[in-house]
Nucleic acid binder design. Structure first.
Lengths: 150, 150
DNA sequence: CTGTTTGCAAACGATTTGCATGCCA
DNA sequence: TGGCATGCAAATCGTTTGCAAACAG
C-alpha cells in the first residue's frame, strides 16, 4: 500500500488548487492514517500534529476538500458521519451494530450487487457511500450463545 | 394493499401495550400514508389531522413506537433520518442524490446481495435499514444530456 | 382514579457563521 | 503583497428534557 508522506499531501492539495496549510496537512494525514474517521477523531488526531487545529477548522476543511472531491463521507453507526479520502472510498462498508466494527465489503460481491441494480433498476450506485448495517459473524455467534435454544 | 383505518391503528397500538392517543393515531396514520417520512413531514402531516401535535411529541412517539418495534428508521439523504412502519420496512431503498427520489429495491436483488454477504463475510445484513445511494435512471439520462461528449 | 402522555419552554450538543488576524503562494 | 484560511466566539439548527396539566384505560 503506497503510503503518502506530508510532502505528497501538500502537492496533492495544490493539484486541486487548494492551499497546503499546516492544518490541512494534519487533517489529510489523519484521514490517511485512520482510513475513515469521525470529526472528533480527526480533531484529536490532527491536533497531535498541529495543536492549533480547531473544531471549526476541521469542519471547514472537510467541507472544502469534499467540494473538490478529495474527501467523501458516509454514515456509519447511527447518525455518526465518517469521512475518508476519496482514494480510500472505493469500497462499501459492513457496519456491525453489535460491536461497531467496520469491514470492507468484498469487491466481487459489491460488483455483482451494483450490476444487478443497474440491470433491474437502471440505477447507478454510488459505491463509496454504501454502508451496510447488520451484525458481524462474531456478534451473530454471541447472539446465539445468549439465546441458546427455543 | 391492505389499508388500515384509524380504528385498526388504535387496536394495533393497544396490542403493543401502548395508549391510543389522538396524536399517536395521527402520527401512525401519517407514517402509513407516507410510507417513509422525515420528522418534519410527519409533524406537518399529523398536524393536518390533529393540530395540537407538537414537534417534541413526534420525537417522543417515534422513539416509543421504535422501542416497541412498530417503527424503524433509516438514513436516506444526507443526515436525514426517515421513519417507517415496520410493516413497511422489509425492503431496501434506492436513494437518488440527483432528484431525491426513493425507490424500493427489487426483492430478488436484495436477497441475492444479503446471501452473498452472509456467505462471504458471515455478516447478517439488517435488511430494513439498507439504503443505497446513487443516481436513478432519469438522473443518469440527464447527466448524459449535460455532458454530451468528450 | 392513576399512571401515561402531552404541551410548553428551556436546555443541550453538534455544526455553522462573522469578523479580525495570520499565513501561503 | 493580496487573498484565502484560521482562530475565536457567538449564532443557529435539530433534538431532548423537566414539569404541570390533560387524557386513556
Amino acid at each position: 500500500m503506497a503510503q503518502l508522506r506530508t510532502d505528497d499531501h501538500a502537492e496533492l492539495l495544490r493539484r486541486y488548487g487548494l492551499r497546503a496549510t499546516g492544518q490541512r496537512l494534519a487533517i489529510v494525514g489523519a484521514l490517511q492514517e485512520l482510513g475513515h474517521a469521525t470529526i472528533e477523531q480527526l480533531l484529536e488526531a490532527s491536533q497531535a500534529v498541529s495543536p492549533t487545529v480547531q473544531l471549526s477548522t476541521v469542519y471547514r476543511v472537510l467541507e472544502t476538500l469534499g467540494a473538490h472531491g478529495l474527501v467523501s463521507h458516509t454514515h456509519l453507526l447511527g447518525a455518526t458521519k465518517t469521512y475518508q479520502l476519496s482514494t480510500h472510498a472505493n469500497h462499501a462498508h459492513l457496519v456491525c451494530r453489535g460491536c461497531g466494527s467496520v469491514t470492507e465489503l468484498a469487491d466481487d460481491v459489491a460488483r455483482r450487487f451494483t450490476a444487478d441494480i443497474s440491470r433491474v433498476h437502471g440505477f447507478d450506485v454510488d459505491f463509496g457511500h454504501l454502508s451496510v448495517f447488520g451484525r458481524c459473524a462474531d456478534c451473530v455467534a454471541k447472539d446465539l450463545d445468549e439465546s441458546p435454544s427455543a
